Computed example of a mutant assay.
Amino acid sequence: MEPARTGGARTVGGQTRGGLIQYELAGMDVADVRFAVSPLTELTLSLRTFRDPGRYPVHLPWLQRTEGARAALDLPVLRALTNDVLWTPDYLTPRPYSPLTRIADELAAIESVPVPRLADDLRAVHPGDLPAALRGDLGTVRARIATALREYWNTCFEPWWPRMRAVLQADVVHRGQVMSAYGMASMFADLSERVRLVDGVVRVRLGSDARFRRATTGEGLTLVPTLFSRGATTPISPDEPPVIMYGARGVGTLWETEPERSPKALAGLVGATRAGLLTVLATPASSTELAGRLGVTTSAVNQHLRALRDAGLLASARHGRSVLYLRSELGDALVTGVASSRSGVRHTGAPAG
């Protein structure tokens, strides 16, 4: 029997049986669609990399850097929170309500999850016998899970979270720009090949055989980017809040530390670091993310960003407590113009004589 509660995380990796979830937007109102980020969801979904690291090759550098720290964690519990098809307990992937959700608030909530809910979610992931680490008094199990996840966060996530959060927030900004420029249908189509907006109804195709249609009136539809999911998924129970989790853009750059190559002519004009910044800022990013990618300090990056912005080569926008930067039209023209001139093509499109 299909579990009553089967959150988005658990639908990934299931059998392909042609499920279809449909969310009716209230008059296609933009206000009915919101973006949010959940640190706990990222923490939980990252446990998939423990069981099947080859499925997530982009995260191998992070797994290597945190190998020593993971060895000291409560690995029996952490490994028990996924199964062979990479499902995870629903209560550990809650619906977030803000792009700035705090991990402390989410961890506090799971410490007090009702025991019947805990039992249902664990049994849904492990319908046969529970792993040994999840057996016994459920109150004790609940506390052990919360402690294990908190220690996992402190040692393996917190040092890297600014970089992770920057990628997630940049994705949210990008989706907003797509929606503003091309409309909601284009934004939904850009999330995943599984997602489409047709006549005011968001359609999500899943690997399970779940099918239902419900309105989002009064609740809205929450879109949650994640670093540890390659497709898009959603709860397969109509009783769950309307949520779509989807793979964030830019994950491939998450663990890069080497400066990206930029045209030598551009580096000669503005310097190697600023040329690198202009090259990578074809998509939005924060100074913290850029510092990690280019291998320089955040304070140094901020100085270069201010200079490029003052020269009109970058635009910036505040997103919560972060400032995201993006190449301006002038910056685009400079980067593409230099590249064209180096390849022997004039701006007019005529061959160089």
Rank of each mutant, 00 (worst) to 15 (best):
T279D: 08
G207K: 13
T101N: 08
T283E: 10
S343P: 12
L294K: 09
G268M: 05
E219I: 01
T88G: 13
A181L: 14
V141M: 04
L281N: 05
G200D: 06
F212N: 09
T348S: 13
E219V: 02
L223H: 04
W160A: 10
T11C: 02
T288E: 13
I21T: 09
A300M: 11
G276K: 05
P242D: 01
V173P: 14
G19C: 03
G176K: 12
T233N: 15
A291P: 06
E219A: 10
R34G: 02
D32Q: 06
S208G: 06
G344S: 00
S341Q: 15
V338S: 11
T16F: 10
T336G: 09
S229H: 14
E258H: 06
R135N: 08
V77Q: 10
L107W: 02
T336R: 15
G271L: 02
P235K: 07
T6C: 09
D120M: 03
A267M: 03
P225R: 04
A185D: 10
A146T: 00
W153I: 01
P263S: 11
E42A: 07
G295H: 01
M164G: 10
T93Q: 15
Q169P: 10
T336F: 09
G176H: 14
L81P: 11
H304P: 07
A185S: 14
A215D: 15
F212T: 06
D199F: 02
S192P: 09
T93K: 10
L197W: 02
R261S: 05
N302F: 04
A291M: 01
T101F: 02
E158G: 05
A170Q: 13
E329F: 01
